[in-house]
Design a protein around this nucleic acid. Sequence first.
DNA 1: ATAGATGCAAATGTTTTGCAGGAAA
DNA 2: TTTCCTGCAAAACATTTGCATCTAT
Lengths: 144, 144
Amino acid sequence: MPHEVEQRSLSQYLEDHNLKQTRQREAVLEVFLDATGHITGEEIYNRVRKQHENIGYTTVYRTMKLLCEAGLAVERHFDDGITRYEIEHEHHDHLVCLRCGKIIEFECSMIESAQQDIASRYGFRVLRHRHELYGHCKDCEPEA
Amino acid sequence: MPHEVEQRSLSQYLEDHNLKQTRQREAVLEVFLDATGHITGEEIYNRVRKQHENIGYTTVYRTMKLLCEAGLAVERHFDDGITRYEIEHEHHDHLVCLRCGKIIEFECSMIESAQQDIASRYGFRVLRHRHELYGHCKDCEPEA
DNA sequence: ATAGATGCAAATGTTTTGCAGGAAA
DNA sequence: TTTCCTGCAAAACATTTGCATCTAT
């Protein structure tokens, strides 16, 4: 049960950092873990609000920041300027459908090594990268 | 003289679209063309202001939007969320130094074709992409 | 003369912060 | 009972818009 694991690791993190376990943090974590990933702050806020009428944006954002620090979540910034959160997992990049907003993850070791080649050509040390392909997904372009 | 060419193509665009040639537009264009590229709205504003005390951000942003529509400029969005403008030229990607902010352009046809392979694997049609490598440039990491 | 441009001030939209009151340890 | 949280309102920040005024044509 992945949720249990993640919840435990949050508890652990909170404990290690002298932070408190609260109803709001649990609610945000649960919504985040139940999402398919790539969820925005607003979406989390709206979903949490269904069970927890009084929660504010403030708490959602603060909690998501916390989850990022705890290593459970990662912030992603696509072209629309709205921060999305995904569950931290092994390295990957994204295909983003400009019509329906669908986000597909992919991984390509050939590209990764090509990146290293390019970087070393410029004496550059790559710490992270961002690689996004924008277009139309299968469902949004039937005449493909 | 590339500036002459670009200025002429702006004039042409303005004329074709029944827009007026103004002192402000000329000033913004000149600053933009003199920049090494990847200049922010704020930087343009500050530089234009030296010669043209009363110009507002509004005009800078509106003019840059115009230059984009005219095909002279392209908006770029890196990780810091601040829009940068570069002179439109053939397709390329970027290395961004996280210490000094330097931006280096690169091109890699192997990566481009790998992207197409991946996209077609998902029935995805790529319209554009974004590929940025973040790290430390040669000057910012002497012990490389 | 008149369509279009300018610049100020105010609005936008997302995310963050200050602060007084509330809850976990 | 103290430390940490919460939620509100307000601020931040880059960019955009409304509007009255000004200007290129």
